[in-house]
Nucleic acid binder design. Sequence first.
DNA 1: TAGATTGTTAATCGATTAACAATC
DNA 2: TAGATTGTTAATCGATTAACAATC
Lengths: 207, 207
Amino acid sequence: MKNITTPTTTIERLPLYYRYLEKVNSEGIEVISSKQLGDGLGIPSTQVRKDLSYYGEFGRRGVGYEVDVLMKNLKKILGLNNNWEIVLVGAGNLGQALVNYGGFKKLGLNINYVLDIAPDEIEGNLDEIEIYPMEKLNEVIRDNNIKIAIIAVPAEGAQEVANKLIDSGVEAIWNFAPTHLKLPEDIKVRDEDLSIGLISLSYYLSN
Amino acid sequence: MKNITTPTTTIERLPLYYRYLEKVNSEGIEVISSKQLGDGLGIPSTQVRKDLSYYGEFGRRGVGYEVDVLMKNLKKILGLNNNWEIVLVGAGNLGQALVNYGGFKKLGLNINYVLDIAPDEIEGNLDEIEIYPMEKLNEVIRDNNIKIAIIAVPAEGAQEVANKLIDSGVEAIWNFAPTHLKLPEDIKVRDEDLSIGLISLSYYLSN
DNA sequence: TAGATTGTTAATCGATTAACAATC
DNA sequence: TAGATTGTTAATCGATTAACAATC
């Protein structure tokens, strides 16, 4: 019976729901309807309900969703109870920005280890975190049983870094290098190709 | 007859094609098949051909695509001949990373103007670029006829910044603030919500 | 001619949306 | 009870893929 797979688009909306619930929760709101939740995010209420329905029945008909109940469920669904330890490879501008981005830590996503080919040459805003040389990659990942890695190195070096990460035990990669990584099927890769966003705006303004 | 609209997914793949062509071009390759192009990006050849077919017939049957011809066409389609001038609002870590990201300039996407609420307090890697105070927003945008803006301010301030940008004449916004902007229909917004990427990896590892 | 590869049609697959019974 | 809102089915819409004639 449960032969239905969750659409990938649904999975990408769940974090939005979670964050919006955090917001209304901090405002003291205790119950929210799919309409209100959707309006806050530009998503139809019918889609909100459909998305949630892949995971259970979290609301009450005629009433809505209890904010704290839905948050707790989404947190679990998204794996945010795991307190992930994450390694970042590449401490350039973008890497530093990611480490300093405040939003991750409170979600249980901790970028605790940073590596770079030239740790001594890094200038910027990473004063309080130790930067390891690339030679320590295997050690850092194995010793801390790290499963998630971020690649923020230039395109040329990304494939080699990815291979090493996987050899060391990493299972999921958030890839900011503008290149297609060829990796085993069971490794989860999320490409975050920043230039697509800006180029697509250029496209829309021109057409 | 031409009542067919291009899928949004196609539009997001065009930049990938363009960049891959740049790469093979720099390697001296003059002709490429849809199969080769697709393999380099993890995209089926049939999809490559379908995507391109929305814009014209760029290849030769039995032969493939001439790299420079296809590049020239894609460049035009993507609007990269326009030499866009772009304004960035918010010179924090992420904003600085975007300004210093090398890939944009060679695509004719020039982040030439940076604004921040506290221009004097910015420390980091923007030594060579002037940072304007927010009061100059309208002036900078109007005087330079800027159509594309990047928002890299905290979520709380993003809607207000977006409103001002649009009042000044901006038509497309690349939004890094983790919030849903409510804007007129004719304004093109691209949300680049960084936390989605990392949270979805957490999801996949947990399910 | 034989082999390769495009461009396009039709079939399939996946995601969104409308509609409404269930129920608070 | 009357009004509101969920959860779910079925219909629609959109995107991908298979297949193949056209043609180099």
